[in-house]
Nucleic acid binder design. Sequence first.
DNA 1: GGTAGACCTGGACGC
DNA 2: GCGTCCAGGTCTACC
Length: 329
Amino acid sequence: MPRRFSIPAPGDFVLRRDYCSYGYFLLWPNHWSVADEVVTRALALPGGPAVVRIAQPTEGRREKAGRPLAIEASRTLDRRDAAEVRARLTRMLRLDEPAERIGEFHGVDPRHQRSGRGRLMRSPTLFEDLIKTVTSCNVQWPSTVVMNRRLCEVAGDRAADEGPVTHTFPSAERLARTRPGTLRARCRVGYRDARIVDLSRRFAGEEGARLAGWMEDPATPDDALWEALLELPGIGPYAAANVMQLLGRYHRLPLDTESLRHGRAVLGMKGTDRALMKRLHAHYAPFGPHAFRSYWFELWDFYESKHGPSWTWHRDTTGTQFTASKLSV
DNA sequence: GGTAGACCTGGACGC
DNA sequence: GCGTCCAGGTCTACC
């Protein structure tokens, strides 16, 4: 199998817009090159770790939408490795979400029809999404950035000696056997240490794979999934709602203090935090199964009004600025 | 069922 | 340079 190959993209897909659509694109082991619009990402593959670069060349055409993705790996990939790369990137970029579903969202919320926004970037695995969500709770964004970088450097597998990404994201198995004290001291995760280890134990091995498969299955009932997520250590109502949207279920809203800021500053809402939460839920309820996308892209538009298009944000500068206090109007 | 306080880190601020 | 305060969501004990 060559080190270079391509992956077809849905007709509406634009790499820079759809990859730079959720904050996790700024977290290790992800890297977006603003200058050449290339994603660099380390992946754990059956044959060992590798770094992959993802671009969407236009081959002279002006229009990027729907052009295939060009993949370049740091080493030769065998058939199993290449299949795994396709599967992980399909999840991360939501390449299997039909363009019709994005059109459905634009029908419900036409504000985003012109930009074409609708796809939301996520992690290559549910486990990474869970840990990233836990590291984003009760902490300001710069600390989330630090935690994810150190988790990769301390517990990830080395995939390259240099470049913007050197390590994979740690596996559930690896974190399950890491001492909480190590995570606290070396990864700066604080009191999340034991919760991360406990969470990792649930997603390690074959049993963990079965649990992840059940959670990823679109046939799993929403309420059962919600209850199962709340059972996980470190996952409360906010985190569970966030993981629900990461699983493609957009009707629940992960509202936090950033949502309150948005409600007051952008939507002109007034009242106590509790009252505002109710108003925010009511505000987005008309968007039904697309409520989160309406909320999120409204928020994203605000961020872009402050910092320019998201594909011009640098991971290590602009990408550390996203906290409610720094975004206050 | 609702609420208060602890948990931990890093940044801001005052001295 | 040091100490204090604060932001942030989850968890537990208590009413």
